[in-house]
């Protein structure tokens, strides 16, 4: 990564990040059902809660701390198994400082970039359906839990089509049907319409989650690869409204080089 593209990515990440502290500053709604220590603070190391049916309750406001995975989802990997064209595309996106990132134009980020954005997201869990509400863009995602398979010929779109099931205490979400336009991160790891994403959400205790993400896109990568992010609970917080298109002055200024 050269310096200018790194700066571009960091500058963009900072733009996203600026909306987050505001919520932390002026929204302080005490969450019900949160275990507390003697001084009234949320006890984030208390046991993970469960629903009456025995399944883990993943409900709450979560955030992957830091910018690391938003900038480079493969930051922890020694090597990414690019197909040759994908390696060239990645280099091109880096060399042009990410000027064509769909995020720059308020287009949706895809799955799994959405997990790593610097605005929190909220899981709402019901028996047949889990929804994730993303503060970023005030956009939602549905994860069907009623046992349906992934559609054989889904309408390609930005977020794809997600179905989930439980593997013990881990929620396994499979997503397919990408239109291939979203980037995996602001550096620009590419995907195609062959993308299949598997996310494994494991709530380790009240305040901590392991999120293992497997990227399987044989058109872009020679073999599947896996990364792990660590969302943390944001107790006593709520999502705020986020309208990317409102007074957006960025378009035209992402010129690359």
């Amino acid at each position: 990564m050269n310096n200018s593209s790194r700066w571009s990515a960091i500058a963009f990440a900072c733009l996203l990040w600026m909306s987050t502290p505001a919520s932390a500053q002026w929204l302080n709604v005490p969450s019900k059902g949160v275990p507390r220590t003697k001084d009234g603070k949320a006890d984030l190391s208390a046991p993970a809660p469960r629903l009456p049916d025995g399944k883990p309750d993943l409900g709450g406001v979560w955030l992957v701390p830091g910018l690391k995975y938003l900038i480079n989802i493969a930051a922890d990997l020694k090597e990414v198994p690019f197909q040759p064209w994908a390696a060239a595309e990645y280099k091109k996106r880096m060399d042009t400082a990410g000027k064509d990132d769909p995020n720059n134009f308020c287009l949706p980020s895809g799955i799994p970039e959405k997990d790593a954005v610097t605005s929190p997201w909220k899981i709402v869990q019901t028996p047949g359906l889990i929804i994730i509400l993303y503060e970023s863009r005030t956009i939602f995602r549905q994860i069907f839990m009623d046992g349906r398979p992934l559609p054989k010929d889904p309408n390609p779109n930005w977020q794809g089509y997600s179905v989930g099931h439980w593997d013990g205490d881990t929620l396994v979400v499979e997503t397919a049907g990408s239109n291939g336009k979203a980037w995996l991160d602001t550096n620009g790891h590419p995907v195609t319409d062959a993308l299949k994403v598997t996310e494994r959400f494991t709530r380790k205790d009240f305040g901590h989650m392991d999120l293992q993400i497997t990227i399987d896109d044989p058109k872009a990568y020679t073999k599947p690869w896996t990364v792990t992010e660590n969302p943390t609970l944001q107790p006593d917080d709520e999502l705020i409204e986020y309208i990317c298109e409102e007074n957006n002055r960025d378009v035209g200024h992402f010129v690359g080089k």
């Binding site: 709604v29 949706p108 359906l129 929804i131 509400l133 549905q142």
Partner: peptide, 30 residues
């Protein structure tokens, strides 16, 4: 989408959501 403490309305148009607490806490402050 309805849960004991919250009702969420997902709108196809604009792909936007409203999250409506029904837990009796005053969320209108500040």
């Amino acid at each position: 989408v309805q849960t004991p403490r919250r009702v969420v309305i997902l709108y196809e148009s604009w792909h936007i959501f409203r999250s409506i607490p029904t837990d009796g806490i005053d969320h209108s402050i500040s």
